[in-house]
Structures are given as C-alpha cells and as structure tokens.
C-alpha cells in the first residue's frame, strides 16, 4: 500500500484554480501535478477528499516508478476536462467502444511498459486507461497459440503433462 503523508499547509499557491498535488514515485521522484489532472483517478480523488477538512497539503506515495507515473500523468493531462464514459462511476458499464486513436499511439510501447501502465492504472482506479491497456494486450495475444501467448507475456506453463494432453482438457479448457 502506498503511504499518504500529510504536509504542513505551506504557501504554495496553485496555478489557476486547481490545487497542486505531490506524487512521490517508488524511485523517490517528486512530481507536482494539478489536482484537476489527476481527478480522473478515483483513488487519488478519494484520498484528496479524505483530507479536505484538514486544510493540509498532501503528498501521495505510489508504488510505481516515475517513468510509469509520468505516462499516467500524460494520459490524464491529455483527457483533462474530457468526459469519458468508462470513468463515470454513475454510468452504466460501457459496451465495446471504438478504440480511441490517441490511446493507440499512446500505448504503442513495449510489453513490459504496457503491463506496468495497466497495473498503475488499476491501482489508481482509472478505468478508461485500464480498458485501453487491456484491449491493447488482448490484441497482442488474440489469434495466438497457447505457447505463443506464454512467450509473449512470459507466463509459465504449470500444467502437468497429463493435464495438458488430456482429451477433455484439450476440448473444453
């Protein structure tokens, strides 16, 4: 779990009307970001709400690197002010929406980075980003054999030879 640390209410004025948040990555990089930008993250929103009454500024320690965190911030910055159905907690779960073009380019990263982003997005509860990453990963493995899926995503085959070759397993999974 990350630690949210309270800091004194010092005198850092937020730019414009948006307050500033301090996000601390696992590699101890301090990233200041406007609260508005990160409001797409339900996790961050909930944490900030929890401290509203205290009139203190907050630093939020996150369990992923600054490189990943910056990617997430880039995503949130791009969609700042945009309404995305997936991120609306009151909306019904969306069906299969078309892939957003910008997301496709944004997620054109290597496999490891993609996995880190989806985990970060899941942690921060940014459903739209989780969905886009999940779709990208699904695209990587769709149409591949089981062996290819293992290779692509580094998964170990833990079936026993008997389990793997049993006729019933082969047919029905």
């Amino acid at each position: 779990m990350p630690t949210i640390v309270s800091v004194d209410d010092s005198t850092v004025p937020g730019e414009g009307s948006s307050r500033l948040l301090l996000l601390v990555s696992s590699d101890n990089k301090h990233i200041v970001v406007e609260e508005d930008i990160m409001s797409r993250s339900r996790f961050i929103s909930k944490q900030v709400e929890g401290f509203e009454a205290t009139s203190q500024r907050h630093a939020i320690l996150l369990p992923f690197s600054s490189f990943v965190l910056n990617k997430v911030i880039e995503y949130c910055s791009h969609y700042r002010g945009y309404y995305l159905l997936e991120d609306d907690p009151d909306a019904a779960p969306p069906g299969r929406s078309p892939v957003r073009e910008w997301d496709q380019e944004f997620l054109d990263v290597d496999r490891n980075m993609l996995l880190r982003i989806i985990k970060a997005a899941h942690y921060l509860e940014i459903k739209s980003l989780v969905g886009s990453c999940a779709r990208a990963i699904a695209d990587m493995i769709r149409g591949k054999t089981t062996e290819e899926m293992r290779e692509i995503l580094g998964v170990e085959n833990d079936f026993t030879p008997e389990e793997e070759h049993s006729p019933s397993s082969k047919c029905t999974g």
Binding site: M1, P2, T3, V5, S6, V7, D8, S10, T11, V12, L22, V24, S25, S26, D27, N28, H30, V32, R57, A59, L61, L62, P63, F64, S65, N112, L115, R116, K119, I137, L153, G154, V155, E156
Partner: peptide, 26 residues
C-alpha cells in the same frame, strides 16, 4: 516543490521493492 514536506512515512512501505518485483502477467 519544497513546500511539500514529507512529514512521515509509514513503516513497512517498500514501494521500490514492489516495482522491482513486478509480477509477470500470470
């Protein structure tokens, strides 16, 4: 940046270790 002072860090958090030990997709 300097105005955000990290006052305390709860013990037990080892975020760095968590990242290094990224679990595989499995």
């Amino acid at each position: 940046m300097d105005d955000f002072v990290v006052a305390t860090v709860k013990p037990g958090l080892n975020a760095t270790a968590q990242v290094v030990a990224q679990p595989p997709i499995a």
